[in-house]
Simulated scan of single mutants.
Amino acid sequence: MISSFFSQSKPINFVVVSIILFMVFGITRFMMLDTPTDTFSITKQTLLFGVCLFSVFIFDFLVNKNNLTKKNSYKILVYVLFFAILPETLLNPNVLIANLFILFALRRIISLRSKKEIKKKLFDAAFWVTIASLFYFWSILFFILILAALIVYVITDVKNWLIPVIGTLTVAIIGASYMIVMNIDIYNFFTNLVDVSFDFSSLNSKRIIIGATILLSFGVWSLFYYIKNLKSKTKNSRPSFSLIVIAAIIGLVIIVVSPVKDGSEFIFLFAPLAIIMTNYLEVISEKWFKESLLWVLILTPMITLLL
């Protein structure tokens, strides 16, 4: 039974999830891209897969470290299955890298609840979000999550509110210096970087429509129970769970404003939705229902591959 196998957190679970991710990554790159088989291309694809796999590791670490779910492997299974449901997220290298940096930032943001090394964590979070924005500009919206963390964790020292700005300026200064040395036109770079579109016609494909519908339907349904169960969480942990909801909302906004809507922009929803869905799976008492939900997530990408 799928639900029983992933109900615990063991190394074998991570191995299985890694194999699933490898298969999804390989099939996606083979079917959707005309990738050459020279040494450079193979090395590039290997590095990109490494980015995807490392993102799973970071996601698992931040969830376990901050007790955002119970000790199980549902979260990483759901996270990887989201890639399978919307494989377009694996086609854009810049988005994959930006998502990894956002996970770095999310790890530092959630850990603010300990009230230890606040300045360092705020600097790191802003630093990673700003770097992510250089690869995918609209990931800069996760800066809102830093401000939200300052509010929900009741961090009132004015100096702490200035730290994220310093983190962003650090990246800006380093980036500008690099562009000057490399003779890169800074104005043109940022002009091309900042763009917005509300044209969703490019998402009009059966695979993306089905994948997005499954993702959002399960997400909204799980969110209802997630918010309902917030009252049962300890007072100290509620702010962290609230930040996950805000992160999901930011992910939705990125989908809406994304200038190039090719499906890859959905990746920023994966981490918060995986946490929300895992919390829902943990409270389902009917084992058959939990099993059914997981099988829907598993079978959906198999069905969409035939379309």
Rank of each mutant, 00 (worst) to 15 (best):
T234W: 02
A247D: 07
S258I: 03
I255P: 00
A248T: 08
I244K: 04
M277P: 00
N236L: 14
V260A: 05
I275W: 10
A274F: 10
K235D: 09
F266M: 11
G251F: 14
K261T: 01
V256D: 10
T278P: 03
S237L: 12
M277I: 06
I244P: 00
E265S: 01
R238N: 03
F241S: 01
I255D: 14
D262I: 05
V260P: 00
N236Y: 11
A274R: 05
F241Q: 02
V257E: 13
F266H: 06
L273G: 01
A247T: 04
F241G: 00
P259A: 15
S264E: 04
I255Y: 12
S264F: 03
G263D: 10
I249T: 06
S237D: 11
K235W: 07
R238D: 04
P272C: 11
E282N: 11
A274P: 02
S240D: 08
I246R: 03
I267C: 03
S258C: 11
D262L: 07
S258G: 04
K261H: 09
Y280L: 08
L273K: 02
L243Y: 12
E282D: 14
F268A: 02
M277N: 07
V256S: 09
K235A: 13
N279I: 12
L252P: 00
V283Y: 07
P272S: 13
V253S: 07
I275P: 01
F270K: 01
P272V: 09
E265V: 00
I244A: 05
V260N: 06
V256I: 15
S258D: 13
I244Q: 06
M277K: 02
I276N: 06
I275F: 08
V253G: 04
G263Q: 09
D262R: 05
V256A: 15
I249S: 06
T278E: 14
I244T: 03
I255G: 08
S258Q: 11
N279A: 14
E282P: 07
V245I: 15
L273A: 04
L273V: 02
S258W: 04
L273D: 02
S237F: 09
I254H: 02
F268Y: 15
G263L: 07
A274Y: 09
